[in-house]
């Protein structure tokens, strides 16, 4: 693993030059935040509150360290926070309904040596898992859309707010497709061992559809997709408000 780490750092230095340091720094902060999240939860802090706070830190790092234009970064940050809140609001009832928390009987072999009375609320952790899963996708989407839209506005300053929305969707189309691919392919990566196992355990189709682990994976993918879809209009709205303000200012003058 050290060889891989070394190769990664060398390649990064070669490709990104001086930018590599801030990249590595950002990744390190994200890693530390996640480790902090784990330790706090294991120590008995409330799962959802801790996740919310750590998510906030991660979003700040992920957006402000990667984006140089402060206007773009502000809009992307506002959008991401709103989206993570919405995801939380969607996930809480859906997870409650699906009861797809924790691990499955398929994992039992792995769990034999453990005391399962862990004292951690796994239903809440299931919600945290979906939120953490979405952080990278959401921050990337909002940055991509807001920087795309800001560029369009810079090149055509006379744009009306309505046109901003239309442009938001044309920028959003491509990003939505690529993010869907990322989510879908990661779903493939996570589930093919599960499908294989379920087959060797002779599961019937109805057992597969109702399986806890599979349902959890599908829910994660669908909820992240909802987040990505909602990012487009919300980013467009924030940019549009910015444009609206500017045009009022120019009328005043």
């Amino acid at each position: 693993m050290l060889f891989l780490l070394g190769a990664f750092v060398v390649l990064l230095l070669m490709v990104a030059g001086s930018r590599a340091f801030s990249l590595l720094f950002g990744l390190a902060i994200n890693l530390i935040s996640i480790v902090a999240l784990l330790i706090l939860i294991a120590d008995g802090f409330n799962v959802l509150v801790t996740t919310a706070i750590i998510s906030l830190i991660i979003l700040i790092v992920a957006i402000y360290m990667n984006v140089e234009n402060s206007n773009t970064a502000n809009i992307a940050f506002k959008t991401s926070i709103l989206i993570v809140l919405i995801i939380l609001l969607i996930t809480v009832p859906l997870e409650f309904w699906a009861s797809a928390q924790g691990m499955g009987i398929e994992d039992q072999e792995e769990l034999e040596a453990f005391s399962l009375a862990a004292g951690v609320s796994f239903p809440q952790l299931a919600i945290a898992i979906i939120v953490v899963n979405s952080l990278g996708v959401i921050s990337e989407t909002s940055v991509a859309i807001s920087s795309g839209l800001n560029e369009i506005i810079l090149s055509k300053p006379t744009l009306t707010p309505k046109e901003v929305f239309a442009d938001g969707f044309s920028v959003g189309n491509k990003i939505l497709s690529t993010q869907t691919n990322t989510l879908l392919f990661n779903f493939f990566s996570a589930t093919f061992p599960l499908f294989f196992l379920m087959n060797s355990l002779n599961y019937k189709a109805v057992d597969v559809i109702n399986n806890k682990l599979l349902v959890a994976e599908i829910l994660t993918m669908l909820i992240c997709a909802m987040g990505v879809i909602l990012t487009v209009p919300i980013t467009a709205y924030f940019v549009y408000r910015g444009v609206g303000k500017k045009s009022i200012d120019s009328i005043d003058k």
Binding site: L12, V15, A16, L23, G26, L27, N30, L31, I34, I58, A62, M65, N66, I129, I130, V132, N133, S134, L135, G136, V137, S139, E140, V143, T182, N186, A190, T220
Partner: peptide
């Protein structure tokens, strides 16, 4: 590079 590695980082850890 940064945002894309972030995406996978969070997906891997969440898993």
């Amino acid at each position: 590079i940064g945002p894309l590695i972030n995406i996978l980082l969070f997906i891997v850890i969440a898993e």
